[in-house]
Design a protein around this nucleic acid. Structure first.
Lengths: 132, 132
DNA sequence: CCTTGACCTTCCAGTTGCTGGAGGGTCTAT
DNA sequence: ATAGACCCTCCAGCAACTGGAAGGTCAAGG
């Protein structure tokens, strides 16, 4: 099948598929006589795998490791689990950072009357003018 | 003062300060006869403002708007508040996405024995092999 | 047969927000 | 005079795509 059909089934843009091929995340697609890429179901399967992994926030580097483990019938499930748990702790750190930002912003916003006057604790805080 | 002193006081790398100047986020620094940038306290103040805003996750584009509002003594605090609240809702969306990812990953990890065997529900889920 | 439009190809540039390094000038202290 | 710590500019690269230009291919309709 053509790349656009594969893209639709995998849930990825064609650009991204070509990009994954270019960076070696997936094997180069077979080509037809006219030079068009030709995808089989198992190729789409792999692309879906990547789409899902990227959707869960795994980096391309992590995806490489996952692809290798996916193709390794002798893999240890602990290796996969390790990558997943690392990802969970990365996510936890990101959530914590975002929650801290959010708390600060909400706090500042609650103290800002938000009217036509220029007086604004948000600006003041950013400028650190509270203490001088 | 030299850029490295300004950098230290502002909490930004020198590279970043030059970059902010290059993209017009801050006005070009005054230069000394030898070509070195020369920073005054108010310049450092502005750089700290930016450092803090970036630290709260405001994009450079948002920082531009904040800088403009900062310098506008006729600003409406509602304009500032609007940017801050927009940022809060962006953060909320990001947190929600991360929490969904996290839940999926934790769920998958809990079902993975994480031992020397290849059998792994994490890989299976990514490959979408559960339903066929 | 010709044309139209939707495909496909490659390659290059841009995105965001820096960061690193090369290659060079300057300043300060010894 | 020289070492080392500054400073300068410019170019390249990071993640992970995305957009567009320039051109080849294919299927349908007149």
């Amino acid at each position: 099948m053509n790349i656009s059909d594969a893209a639709e089934r995998a849930g990825l843009p064609t650009k991204t598929i070509r990009y994954y091929e270019e960076i070696g995340l997936v094997a180069p697609a077979r080509r037809r006589d006219n030079g068009y890429r030709d995808y089989a179901d198992r190729d789409v399967h792999m692309l879906r795998f990547l789409s899902r992994a990227r959707g869960l926030g795994f980096s391309v580097a992590e995806c490489r490791a996952l692809v290798a483990l996916y193709g390794d019938t002798d893999r240890k499930s602990s290796d996969v689990k390790e990558i997943a748990l690392k990802r969970v702790s990365d996510i936890d750190a990101k959530i914590a950072a975002l929650q801290a930002m959010r708390a600060t912003l909400v706090d500042l916003s609650e103290n800002c009357h938000g009217d036509d006057r220029p007086d604004c604790p948000i600006i003041d805080d950013l400028a650190n003018e509270l203490g001088g």
